[in-house]
Design a binder for these strands. Structure first.
Lengths: 338, 338
DNA sequence: GTTACAAACGAAATCGTTTTCGAATTATAA
DNA sequence: TTATAATTCGAAAACGATTTCGTTTGTAAC
């Protein structure tokens, strides 16, 4: 009924604990016959070695920690699913912690994972993270660490990201191709690399086509919330009537924008086009449906886990080979709002 | 730099491992002076006992497992946050697994948690779970198990739920108070208790006010998706023009309904009112904004964790006292769609 | 000075697995 | 027949914390 031990199996088969353990791990100094017998019995009673005891010897916990900025976030949920799927395939357990976009909490969560002796940490850093001491400490302890989506250029750890600048560039070019000339940008906070890159992609597209670029058309969504989008759109309507398109850093502000435009009975996309970023599940359900950039969440999660395995191997071998970085492709999802 | 052990502290202070351990746990046979010294040093070097080694003696892993039907689900994300918050306060780690609404996967995930020696399991069962052997097995192993939101009446384990029947009853009564007389219901799958209860609440309200109740106005959303809502609403418009309100088992189908009604340019709520259930973040952002029933997710998560602690204590003492069940209050959120 | 007792500390066993090293058995060669 | 090698197994020592049970030391009572 309860979880069996090697001892139980050894007793049942008249073998020593050592031989049972070695048989299960295919040591060469156990006869084929004995291996068969042990494996068959272990299979029958559904034995799996006690992970805690194993850790004590091997110092491998077979657990990884994941730190994400937010739990109830469509994109990160998808990344998580990708991570967990890959983790399961490799017999790893996953501990998920949220930083709630707070630098202080992020530090605590990372420390907690280190104390838990996780074999590695996958992290997407918070909007407010301005210091990488906690990350550096993980590196010093030789614990594999992988960034996904929100990384820092100041850390040498491997990362899997999208090309935010290029994606934003494509998105804005799409608006331009639709004939829009005065495009406002609801950008993200100032620190995160991806909100910087999306802004740069926006500016590059504008400048390349020699459209007007105005600082007054750039608004910073501190919380990347629908409320941010709603408020700034209202402001745009009242103070910048010449604006004919909005490119938002994420779907949530874009949906807030649509909400506002609907209330003011502005025709979308004729009078004002709206472009989001991330392709959340809900973005297909607004009226009108939101055009956006698709981010491959599950793929990113799976790649992040694979990078962790690679990084672990790299650290084990003590190689000074370069870390891997992965850049995933994105694509435009054109719907009714453009 | 690396994680310290009791041995390191003992060596540094010229004490035995035993005394250090006992000092940290406030054993009575350690002098106050020594306790002070040990605690101060442990604090300074940020010592925490190795959880894996501790488990081997105490058989307590200080980890709980959580199984939810879906990861990217607004309500469950909130429950998770409540669980994690409470877990952190009590020094527990949380392993989250998803059943993806599949009975088979749910069984696997529970088995995995048992193998991991979690101290308890919090679970919201899948829509397709029709058999409780896996739950019973957990009970037999004396591992505390707590249901939240989606439970089974066939298991004696404690649970924290809402009164779905009463909440649905209130919601439908609200539609009736708005003058609606022919109310359709987009119900959930047949197995889960909450979709049964919401249906019963709907029927109770209808029958009590002696409105017409028709089987043809009941539609089963197998996936509780927006697509379900969209499809059935289209069907209602085409085949049951007399229907003047829709009560959905969840927000997602309700949003699908609104999407459809908008496309057909049906006036909401004048020609057709729509009521959801759960109060997802997006339900305030549709046009028109969705009326719904608020479910206290975080509170439910926190209560579930508390129930786990209580159940653990109950099992430890071997009491045959009754298990606790908690029912949380819900409230209507009236927006534009009614 | 002897005994009794409490206070303060440590030795050692234990949890279950892994792995090194040595012992035992069998097979092979001389 | 003996020496050697190959094969197969098991004893035992870790890993780090917990806890039982002794041991030592000091104090008080007689």
């Amino acid at each position: 009924m309860k979880n069996l031990t090697l001892k139980d199996i050894a007793l049942a088969l008249g073998l020593s604990i050592t031989t049972v353990s070695k048989a299960l791990k295919d040591y060469p100094d156990v006869s084929a016959k004995t291996k068969e017998k042990v494996k068959a019995y272990a299979e029958k009673v559904n034995f799996t070695p006690n992970a805690y005891a194993a850790f004590l010897r091997t110092q491998e916990s077979k657990m990884i920690g994941v730190v994400i900025p937010r739990l109830n976030h469509y994109f990160f949920s998808n990344v998580l699913r990708g991570i967990m799927h890959q983790a399961e395939a490799n017999n790893y357990m996953v501990i998920v912690l949220s930083s709630e976009e707070s630098y202080e909490l992020e530090k605590k969560q990372v420390a907690k994972l280190v104390k838990q002796n996780v074999d590695g940490i996958l992290i997407s850093i918070a909007d407010t993270t301005h210091n990488l001491e906690h990350i550096n400490r993980v590196n010093e302890l030789n614990i594999p660490l992988v960034f996904f989506d929100k990384y820092s250029k100041l850390s040498p750890s491997p990362s899997v990201i999208i090309n935010d600048q290029q994606a934003a560039y494509m998105a804005v070019n799409h608006l331009i191709a639709r004939g829009k000339k005065n495009i406002a940008h609801l950008r993200g906070p100032l620190l995160p690399q991806n909100s910087i890159d999306r802004f740069l992609g926006y500016r590059k597209a504008i400048e390349e086509k020699q459209l007007t670029y105005k600082k007054e058309w750039i608004f910073t969504c501190e919380n990347i919330s629908s409320d941010d989008g709603y408020r700034y759109t209202k402001h745009i309507l009242e103070h910048h009537p010449e604006v004919d398109a909005i490119f938002a850093v994420a779907d949530l502000p874009a949906i807030g924008a649509i909400k506002c435009l609907n209330e003011y009975e502005i025709a979308i996309p004729e009078q004002m086009a709206v472009m989001g970023f991330s392709n959340w599940g809900i973005s297909a359900l607004t009226t009108p449906a939101l055009s956006t950039v698709n981010q491959p969440g599950e793929e990113m999660g799976a790649s992040a886990f694979d990078l962790f395995l690679a990084e672990k191997e790299r650290l084990r071998k003590g190689e000074n080979s370069n870390v891997e970085n992965i850049e995933l492709a994105t694509d435009l999802v054109i719907r009714e709002s453009t």
